[in-house]
Each structure stands twice: as C-alpha cells, then as structure tokens.
Write a protein that binds this DNA or RNA. Structure first.
Lengths: 214, 214
DNA sequence: TTCATGGGATAGCGAGACTATCCAAGAGTT
DNA sequence: AACTCTTGGATAGTCTCGCTATCCCATGAA
C-alpha cells in the first residue's frame, strides 16, 4: 500500500507518518521508484504500536525510537532483548545521591528487596533504571510525610509480582521472540493504564461501599 | 516566612513560585504590607504537593489547579470531595462511541464489572472519567491484537481491589477530612509510580528467574 | 538618604510534537 | 504526447507548556 492508504487505515495523517519515518520510528517503505514507496501490514502494525506508545503511554518520540530499536535487534537473546527494551522506557532524572532523603529511600527499597528475597533485583540495584524510578518515587512520598517503608511496600510488591507472573505466562503464549518482546513492551506501557484505571475504579468502588454515596 | 525562604526550603525558584501563585496553585501569602507577604508551613506543604503532582505525576498545571480546588472545598462531604478530586485527574480524550472497537471494549468492561459485582461502578459507568480511561486503554490493546476480555482482566481487577482496600485503610489513619482527601490524591498520583516501578521490578525478577540472565 | 529586596506584571525561551508549504519526479488520464 | 495529480522528501513554521528573565517601584533596614 502507499502512504495515503497507510494513513487512511491507521488514522494518522500523512504529515505525521512522514515525521515518524524521518525520526526513524517507522522503517522506510520498499521503494518502487523515485516517487513511490510500498508499505505492508507490518508497517501498519508498527505504526499502531508507535501511536500507542506515544499517545497512550506518553513516551517521548526519542525514547520510543530507542525502545523499538531493541525490539528489532535480532542479535540479542531473550532476556537481554527484553531487558534492553524495558530499560529504555523510564524517564526519571538521576536522584541526588547526596540527599539524605534519597539515601533513606534507597535503604528502604533495599530492605524491601531483602524481605522479598528478590536477589536478582538486588544485584542490579545500582544499574536498573526501574530501581532508580522506585527510589525517586519513594523519596517523593516520604518527603511529603508519608511513612513509606519496606513493611508497607512488601504486600504491594507481592501483588505486583503476581501480576507480572500472569503477564509472563501470557507472553509465553506467543511464538516468535520479537512478538514476545513486543508483548512485554506493550504490557509495560499499555497495560499500565489499564492497571491504573482498574486501581482507581476499585478505589471508587471500595470507597462507595465503605462510606456510601452520601 | 518570605518568598525567598519558601523558595530555599522547597528548592523551587522564586520565579516558579510566583508562576504557581499566578496560576492559583498556591494560595497567596498573608500580605504584611505593600511589598511583603508572609508564608507559613502550610504553604510549604502545599508547594511540595504541587511539585509532586506536576513533576512526578506529570499532571498539567491547569489540571493540578482543578484537583487542588476540590481538596480545598470544605463544603463537600467526604465521598463527593474525594470523588471530585479523583475525577479531575484523568486526561484521556473522549473515545469515539461510533467506533466498533470502542463499543466492543465498553461491552467487555461492562461484563468485567458484572463479573466482579462492582455495582456502584456499573451505575457510574457513563459518567466516571476513570471508567472512560479504562475503555480507552482496553480499546488500544484490543486494536493491537491483544485479546483483552473480561475473563483476562478479572484477576487483575481483584488484585487492584486489594491494593485499593489497603490504601483506604491507610487513608483512614489520618484525622482531618482534608488530609484524607490529600492522601487519596497523593495515592492516586504518586503511589502509581511506585506501583509501576514495583511492577516492572517484579517483571525483571520473574523474567530472570524463568529464563536466567543468559 | 540610600539602596538592596520583595512582589506584581509582562514578555520571552526552549523543548517537543506535529503541520504546512515547496518541489521535482513520476503516474494516471485523455 | 500533453497535462494534471499524487508521492515522497526536505524545510521551516506553529502551538502548547512549563517555566524564566526583565522591568518597575514601593518599601524598609542601615
């Protein structure tokens, strides 16, 4: 199909598609001649994923490009490929390690991982961007006066572990490695809005049960 | 304290504080005379909350103002006040109800609520922005080809219900209604990054357990 | 009296995500 | 074959957002 058709079927304007092509989020079409390029279903699929990452997930374009490049990298093994794609997602700034609040938060997070017996995560503690995000978030909450410690977080962590486990089960139902990594990324980015919405819905529901509608 | 001190203790520049005052995110200080205003601990606390909402939660300034106005509205009862603050949070655009994908997603969400027995949420289905967010998110996932139906979501919903329950328990440990609503908002906005980070950490951990580091 | 400071008003900046306009080379139509 | 339309590529412009820099001048401490 040509650009115009790709645009029509995806609901994305040709100008925007051209922009994504320029930015390397979308591989170029097969050039038929100097004025025509041909796009296939794979392009459509990728375009939908890009839109989802950017619009639903709020991922900046530059970061989306990075994530996608890992998905496409056939030279990596599963764990690395998956890890690389997921590691490219977060966007938190470096916490100031000199700040006592940050140090305290990091200590609590470490205590949490110890409690849970998540040895792998402890080993990666200084490297993983996800770990860093957790430290930043906990720091903020504690600074606002909420007593977030390992004991308080542990039950939540166990719940999220159950969630993650289910998702990996689901991921394994896909055949190709590329699809699996795509599923993992889609889970991390698109599934989180679902979780968030379910969380808030549950909050509404439980709040109404406890206090009534008034 | 004066503007300069508020700035120093919060780590936010005076220019930015002035901006927040202009935008109505921060109530004006008590005017001592034509050139001096006095700020107290409550201002500092509020300023920290504002920063957290905007920087960590990524809430746009205009939306933050709306949320805060509900927190401050003493004329409302608990459920309404809490609901109003939380309802002001989401930012998803209206889904196109004519789109068959949207209709299908909405049907699945409704089936989910039925399965769970969340009657309140079903009644509010057409009103609640959270409900709408869920529909939008599910639509996106389904459009990408993931088979998200009520059966698949139900276990996650139950897990999130457990999370919400714990949080309301925690909320109830605070005395004043205003603080409780603040806690609820802080939970919805700041706790979610924590959940997200825990989720991704759990994914890393479980992935390493299943497939090794390779 | 001097003069640095606080606070209000206004305009500007920089990043990010598009979007509008040109242009030359084909493609489709008659 | 002539003529118009469309394509893809390049470039510059636009719009929003969250600040930030600059003026201005009333004032209060030295």
């Amino acid at each position: 199909m040509r650009l115009a058709e790709l645009s029509e079927r995806s609901g994305v304007s040709t100008a925007t598609i051209k922009y994504y092509l320029r930015e390397g989020l979308l591989p170029p079409g097969r050039r038929v001649n100097a004025t025509t390029a041909d796009y296939d279903e794979e392009h459509l699929r990728r375009l939908r994923l890009v839109r989802a990452l950017i619009q639903v997930g709020g991922i900046p374009v530059a970061r989306a490009r990075e994530v996608l490049s890992h998905i496409d990298d056939d030279s990596l093994g599963r764990t690395i490929r998956l890890g690389a794609a997921l590691w490219a997602l977060p966007q938190d700034p470096e916490p100031d390690e000199g700040d006592p609040d940050v140090v305290a938060a990091r200590a609590e997070v470490d205590r949490l991982l110890e409690t849970l017996g998540w040895e792998t995560s402890r080993e990666l503690a200084t490297l993983s961007p996800v770990h860093r995000s957790l430290v930043v978030a906990v720091t903020t909450l504690r600074r606002l006066g909420y007593p977030w410690d390992a004991e308080l977080m542990a039950p939540y962590a166990r719940l999220m572990h159950q969630v993650a486990s289910r998702q990996l089960d689901f991921m394994e139902t896909y055949d190709s490695l590329k699809e699996q990594v795509e599923v993992a990324v889609a889970s991390a980015v698109l599934f989180e809005p679902v979780l968030r919405a379910l969380h808030r819905l549950a909050q509404e529901e439980e709040s109404a049960r406890r206090y009534g509608i008034e």
